[in-house]
């Protein structure tokens, strides 16, 4: 009879070999999945932020048609399940582009790969939520700030860049950091359209090794680690954004 400690040690050894970076282990596959998840989220972020900013501008414009266009956008992308948005972009955009190309008489293979589809879909969702964050930040900035800018002879653009934007970043940062965490989690959905992210890689490993609990547990821990890392980074950014307030 083996002593239970030995049994645990053997189990641990087995787990470690399953997670190793050798050809039989799944460590390298999971690491590559982690890379895909992180790079997808990072690639989506700038587009999502920029789009969200412009949509917020449109939403607080005095022009009703601009507000309407922006509101339709956010209604759609905040109302659809993210998974469905992903399918619509992945299959739909492809079909649409294909039909457009054949309509224009272009004979070529046009492909929107899973990464780009994921970026567009997640970016659309991210930007519609981000626009709300930016909008409430805009509303928190008193109108006197704009007037002050114009009074000293700055153009609208300069006022925006030099006076409004720095305050906006500070006000929007907590909301945006929340959205970043949501984005990070939403990337898990791209596994369904075949992108080899964390979830897909551990799913394959779980099926082959029949150690589903171990591998999906690892996936959860990886997402937690990413979330923790993000909060550390956001802590730095927030302190940096407030650096002028601290000097008093």
């Amino acid at each position: 009879m083996t002593c239970p400690i030995d049994g645990i040690a053997i189990e641990m050894d087995r787990f470690l070999s399953l997670l190793s970076f050798s050809p039989d282990g799944w460590g390298d596959e999971i690491a590559s999945g982690l890379l895909v998840t992180v790079s997808l989220a990072l690639a989506t972020l700038p587009f999502g932020l920029a789009a969200g900013f412009f949509i917020a501008l449109a939403k607080q414009s005095s022009e009703p048609s601009l507000r309407l266009a922006a509101n339709i956008y956010t209604t759609i992308f905040r109302g659809l399940p993210e998974l469905l948005t992903l399918f619509l972009v992945f299959y739909g955009a492809q079909l649409g582009v294909q039909q457009l190309a054949s309509f224009l008489g272009i004979e070529t293979a046009i492909e929107i790969n899973a990464f780009v589809a994921g970026m567009v879909a997640l970016g659309a969702v991210f930007s519609s939520y981000a626009s709300e964050v930016f909008l409430s930040a805009f509303r928190a900035i008193p109108h006197g700030q704009y007037e002050g800018g114009w009074a000293v002879g700055l153009s609208s653009f300069q006022t925006m860049r030099l006076i409004i934007f720095p305050q906006l970043v500070r006000l929007a940062l907590p909301g945006l950091s929340n959205l970043w965490l949501i984005l990070l989690k939403d990337t898990a959905l791209v596994s369904v359209i075949g992108l080899s992210d964390i979830i897909r890689q551990v799913g394959i490993a779980a099926r082959v090794t029949r150690e589903a609990f171990l591998f999906f547990g690892i996936a959860c821990l990886l997402y937690l680690a990413l979330a923790m890392l993000s909060s550390v980074v956001f802590g730095y950014i927030e302190r940096w954004a407030r650096r002028t307030e601290d000097v008093k």
Binding site: E211, A212, F213, F216, L224, A227
Partner: peptide, 23 residues
Amino acid sequence: VYFFRGTPLLAQTFLIYYGVGSF
């Protein structure tokens, strides 16, 4: 709260369906 808010719902669902289901 940290665990369930920090991980994707998809991963949690798989963990319960395939993970716990394997025992």
